[in-house]
Every structure is written in structure tokens, then in C-alpha cells.
Amino acid sequence: MVPHLKSIQSLLYRLITAPSGVGEGLAAERGLPAGGLESVIRGDDRLSAQDRVDIYANMYFYRLLEVMKEDYSATAEVLGEVNFHNLITGYLLEYPPTEPSVMWAGRHLADFLRDHPLSEEFPFVADLATLERATIDVFCAADAPVLEAAEMNSIPARRWAAVRMRRVPASAILQVQWKVADVLRAVEEKRRWTQPSRVSNRILVWRRHSRVSYREIGSGEAEALTALDRSRAFAEVCEMLARDLPDNTAAGEISRLLAQWLADGLIMRSSAMRRRALPHPAS
């Protein structure tokens, strides 16, 4: 039973996902029963068997095209309708959806774009797609308790060096070759986007109170935030940041960055802090 069901479902899957339509998909089929598709699917005076499978083929492509347009609205705007349509046709062949949620369907688009001919005409577009994908991933990344500035300030300064820090899961640091944050911001603000300059840069994407934001960051900050993928002592973070800073400004710059990270909700409260906070004096 299952082998028979599998062969029918596999046939329909191939026809529905055939890049040039069900007709060409059928022409490429070997081993169709005598009588062709009509011997599997019932056609009538209104719609032939092929017309009926075509309905599913159209729904498959256009549903996913819509999802991609929503997930990659800036990439779609930069490329234009025809290019984007053709891009997604090719993408779905290379990376057909496999996950239960349609939200994962577009997760490989940036990788696909890197080797795509469209990257010759739009060399920054793979970076742009990388940034758009990061905003989606950060939007639904795991929650974590955030270390607030007030709490950090309540720790005596002499103990700061030993405070363990880690970046919240809802954040990402991207290394890109084009100034694509400007393009995404322009599209989001419904302004005209302009060709970005080719400058290696790093973008921090993060979530605070359900809102996803992004900004360019310097190499020292990027290095320190990347290292905070795992728990580090604050002293270690300071050392990393100080490496690229002149001695006379290092202390000021480090405290400015720390204040910014805390305001952005980038640092997790360590479990040690949570334990300390538990026995509330009022309760």
C-alpha cells in the first residue's frame, strides 16, 4: 500500500514542482502508466487531469513567492518583479521547502544568491538578503532574561571585573562587504534606495521588547560581541575592547559601549545574578 501511495504522491510532487509547468514535467516523466496522467487523475469537460494538477502547481509557486516577498521585501524591491520571480523559481528547485513551517522556506536565499548570475548585476544583494534573514531569525529567537543597567549599577564597581556576561540569543553579528543596512533602512522607510558603497562592515541585529533593530558597529565592538556568544568575565571583554583603542580614551569608550549594550538589552543576566535576586526582601 505505502509503496503505491508513495509513487502517486512522488509523481504529483514532481509535476507540481516542475519549474516550467506541469506539461513539461509530464513530458519528462518515464514510466507513466498507459493512458498518461488521465489514468491517475480524473479529468472532465471543465478541466483535464493536467489542468487540475496545474491548479496545485500554481498555488505552490505563488504561495511561496508571496512568503519570499514578505520575508525579503528589500531584496525583492532591489531586484524588481521579474528578476525576483525568476530567482525564486530557481531557488525552489535548489532548496525545496522541507520544514513544517513556511517561515523556514526562504532561509537559504542569501546562500543561493551568492552564486547566482543576478549577483553580477546586483553584487550587494546577497548581503542584503543576509541582513533581511537575520531580522527574521532574531525576531523569533529564544527569550532570555536581560541584564538591566540599574542592576549592573547596583553591583559594587570593585566586583564588575568578575561579572559574567553573555549576549542574548535574540541577536546576531553579520560581516558583510556592502553597506546594505542603508538599503534596508531606505526600503523600510519607503525612501528611494541607492547603490550602497563597497566597504567591509559589521552589522548588529538584535531584539529588545519584541522589536528588531540593526546598526553598523565597529570591528572592536563586533569582536567583543561575537566573543560574548559564550559567557565571559567583564574583565576579559574590557581587554578585548581596549586592544584597538588608544590608552587615553579606552576607559571612556568601554563604558560608553557597556551603557549602550545594556540600554539595547544585549546582555543576559547570569544565573548567579538571578539566584541572588530570588529571596526578595519584601516577600
Binding site: 500500500m1 503505491h4 501511495l5 508513495k6 502517486i8 504522491q9 512522488s10 504529483l12 510532487y13 507540481i16 514542482t17 496545485y56 498555488m59 505552490y60 504561495r63 511561496l64 525545496p96 521547502p97 522541507t98 520544514e99 513544517p100 513556511v102 522556506a105
Partner: peptide, 18 residues
């Protein structure tokens, strides 16, 4: 879907006892 792929659509089945 089939073969580990998802069509993100609701497709009918053959209506048989099997």
C-alpha cells in the same frame, strides 16, 4: 509533502480502503 519535502498545500488522497 513526500520524500521529506513540503508543498505547503493540502492535497487530497485516493479514497480507498487501503
Amino acid at each position: 509533502g513526500v520524500g521529506g519535502r513540503n508543498l505547503h498545500d493540502l492535497l487530497p488522497l485516493p479514497y480507498t480502503e487501503e
